[in-house]
Amino acid sequence: MAYPGKITKFAMGHLSKAPATRAFPLGELIITPHFRGKLVLKADDCIGCGLCERDCPAYAIKVENRGTKENKDFHVTLNLAHCIFCCQCMDSCRKGCLSYTPNVQLAGFNKDDLIVDLTEEWKAAQAVSAEEAPAEEAAVDEAKPEE
C-alpha cells in the first residue's frame, strides 16, 4: 500500500535502539584487522635494493645509502603526505621487510613531521623493546599483522 511517510514505523523503531554512529574522538577506534595503515620496516633484513622506490606510484618512499660503499648504511624514508597506503612497496620487497600497522591517525601540525625515517624508527623500537620486559615485545608483534 502506498501512503506518505511510509518510513514512520521503521524510523520510530530506532528511537529505542542504540545509535549506529559514535562520537568519534571519544571512545575506541575500531579498525578492521587487515586495514593498511602506516608502514614499518624491519631494517635488519633490508638490503637497500630500491625495488620499493621503483614501484611506488606516489614517489613517497626513498632508499638512500648514508654510509660508504663498503660500510653500507641504508635509510628508508617515507613521506606520509605523499603515501597513498597502497602497500605496493610491501609486495615489491623481495625480503619481506616492510609491513603495515593499523596506525591511521597520522595527522600533525608540522609538515616536516610527516617525513619519517623508517630505519631510525625501527632502531628506536628495538632499543625500547630490548630495555623493557618481553611482554612489551609481544604487544609490538601484535601491532604488526603478518600478511
Binding site: A20, T32, H34, F35, R36, C86
Partner: peptide, 30 residues
C-alpha cells in the same frame, strides 16, 4: 549506515575503504 557494512567488508578484503588496491597485474593481491 548500511553502506558502512559493505565498506567494512571491502576494507577487510582489500585493505582500504574505497581504493581497495586488491588488483595487481596478473591477478589479485590478497
Amino acid at each position: 549506515r548500511d553502506r558502512e557494512l559493505v565498506l567494512d567488508l571491502l576494507a577487510d578484503l582489500g585493505g582500504n575503504r574505497v581504493n581497495y588496491g586488491i588488483n595487481t597485474p596478473g591477478g589479485v593481491r590478497r
